[in-house]
Amino acid sequence: MSKYAKILFVFAKRFSEIIDFAILGALVIVASFVFVLFGYDIYKVLFNIIPFEEGIVALLGSLLMLWAVAELMNEEIKHFKGAGFAITVFVSIALAAMIRKLLIASLSESGEKKAMELAAYIFVVLVLGIVYWLIKKNKQQEI
């Protein structure tokens, strides 16, 4: 490499590390806020501020967000230690979010439009499940 290419490479590597630290710091802040949201959702359910069914769905949503942030933080920490990009985490988060969306949609009113919406969510969950399975199967074959 030329002298300028080495300088650019070192700069890019350090800048990338700064970005990774910023992402990890942002995830810590988001996790704190989501943890507070989870506690607030528990408060709303315990003191009947919202109906119980709505509260359970809100709790599941907050818990899902907390889980997603924790997974992303764990993957970012692994990335700092030299691990590669983990696409399975993003697919699993998308899968969990779509399952939550499907649960919420199934609790709302019925109708032809709602049936089409549920069918679309089921299709997306199926596709994400297949993608997740294929990625996991491919990783197992590499090992």
Rank of each mutant, 00 (worst) to 15 (best):
Met1Asp: 06
Ser2Arg: 10
Tyr4Gln: 12
Ala5Trp: 00
Ala5Thr: 02
Val10Tyr: 08
Ser16Gln: 10
Ile18Trp: 14
Asp20Asn: 14
Ala22Val: 11
Ile23Asn: 15
Leu24Val: 12
Gly25Cys: 12
Gly25Arg: 10
Leu27Arg: 06
Leu27Ala: 10
Val28Arg: 08
Val28Pro: 01
Ile29Phe: 15
Ile29Arg: 12
Ser32Thr: 15
Ser32Ile: 15
Phe33Ala: 07
Val36Ala: 14
Leu37Asn: 08
Phe38Arg: 13
Phe38Gln: 09
Phe38Ala: 15
Gly39Leu: 15
Gly39Ala: 05
Tyr40Met: 12
Ile42Gly: 12
Lys44Ala: 12
Leu46Glu: 03
Leu46Gln: 04
Phe47Cys: 00
Asn48Glu: 09
Asn48Ile: 00
Ile49Pro: 00
Ile49Val: 06
Ile49Asn: 01
Pro51Gln: 00
Glu53Ser: 04
Val57Pro: 00
Ala58Arg: 07
Ala58Lys: 04
Leu59Ala: 04
Leu59Val: 05
Ser62Tyr: 02
Ser62Pro: 02
Met65Cys: 06
Leu66Phe: 14
Leu66Gly: 07
Trp67Asp: 10
Ala68Pro: 06
Ala68Leu: 03
Val69Gln: 01
Val69Leu: 04
Val69Phe: 07
Ala70Ser: 13
Ala70Asn: 10
Glu71Trp: 00
Met73Val: 02
Glu75Ala: 12
Phe80Lys: 07
Lys81Pro: 07
Gly82Ser: 09
Phe85Gly: 07
Phe85Ile: 11
Thr88Lys: 06
Val89Ser: 11
Phe90His: 12
Val91His: 04
Ser92Pro: 04
Ile93Cys: 07
Ala94Phe: 08
Ala96Ser: 15
Leu102His: 09
Leu103Trp: 09
Ile104Glu: 10
Ile104Gly: 03
Ile104Pro: 00
Ala105Glu: 15
Ser106Pro: 04
Ser108Gln: 13
Glu109Cys: 03
Ser110Asp: 15
Lys114Leu: 13
Lys114Trp: 02
Glu117Pro: 05
Phe123Tyr: 10
Leu128Asp: 03
Gly129Tyr: 02
Ile130Phe: 12
Tyr132Ala: 08
Tyr132Pro: 00
Tyr132Thr: 01
Leu134Phe: 06
Ile135Asn: 04
Lys136Asn: 09
Lys137Asn: 14
Asn138Ile: 02
Asn138Asp: 08
Gln141Tyr: 09
Glu142Ser: 08
Glu142Gln: 14
Ile143Gly: 04
Ile143His: 06
